[in-house]
Simulated scan of single mutants.
Amino acid sequence: MPTEDARSPTPLASRILVTVVALATLAGPYLADWNETHIYNPRWPPHAKFHNAQTMLLGTALGACAIAFAWRRAADARASLRVAVVFGALYWLTQMGSILFPGAAFVDPERAGQGMIAGLPAQIVISVVLLGLLGAALALARGGPVRQS
């Protein structure tokens, strides 16, 4: 079983996977929410729009942090990658947990049945796929010899 050398570089594939998730985290909230169903929804009170904006900005911040930690030069590149994975995962983990709050729904009542992928809410499918990519990034960083990237 190979031992982990803290000074070993992080595999390029791991960094790329984290970056893909980070870009989805940066752009996804705006693609999903900067429209008439969310930020321009006239039925939403100002405070709901405030929290929607907060969520979009949080995605921007978490995605930027994930990219910064994935690509920074550090004495312990694998530890930096693990931090990048945490930043990359937080948005998607909290999105999955949001449905557990009272009165929460994946879509507004007038959009019932929309936003589904393979019969499941798109939010859950996207979260699971992106979290899977982060898991793959970790697995790649743990296994086998690595090359300088």
Rank of each mutant, 00 (worst) to 15 (best):
L31K: 00
I99G: 03
W44I: 01
R147M: 09
M96Q: 10
G143T: 08
W92I: 09
G143H: 10
L120Q: 01
L31Q: 04
F106D: 02
A32Y: 06
A139C: 09
I124C: 06
M116H: 00
N41R: 07
D108G: 10
T94W: 06
S80C: 08
P11S: 05
V107M: 11
P109C: 11
P121Y: 02
A89W: 01
G28W: 02
P102K: 15
A89H: 00
I124T: 07
F101H: 09
A112N: 08
I124S: 04
R142L: 12
P145W: 11
P42E: 09
A77G: 01
T94H: 04
R82G: 06
H38Q: 01
A89M: 04
V21A: 11
S149P: 15
A89Y: 00
P45V: 06
M96S: 11
A6T: 08
A84N: 02
L134R: 00
A139R: 14
V129P: 07
L138Q: 06
S80L: 07
R7T: 08
G119N: 02
P11N: 03
Q54Y: 11
Y91F: 15
A24P: 08
L58Y: 07
A75M: 03
G119K: 04
G143A: 13
G59Q: 09
Q114W: 08
G63L: 12
W34A: 11
P11I: 07
N41Y: 02
L100K: 04
R43I: 10
I117S: 01
F106Q: 04
C65R: 13
R15A: 08
A13R: 05
L120P: 01
L57F: 15
G113F: 03
P9G: 03
G88A: 14
R72K: 14
W44K: 10
M96A: 15
A104P: 00
L12K: 14
R147Y: 03
A104K: 02
S8I: 10
L17E: 02
F50Y: 15
W44A: 12
W44L: 15
G115H: 03
G144I: 07
Y40M: 14
P121D: 02
A136Q: 05
P121N: 06
A32I: 00
F69I: 08
F50S: 10
P29T: 08
G97L: 15
H47F: 14
V85S: 06
E110S: 09
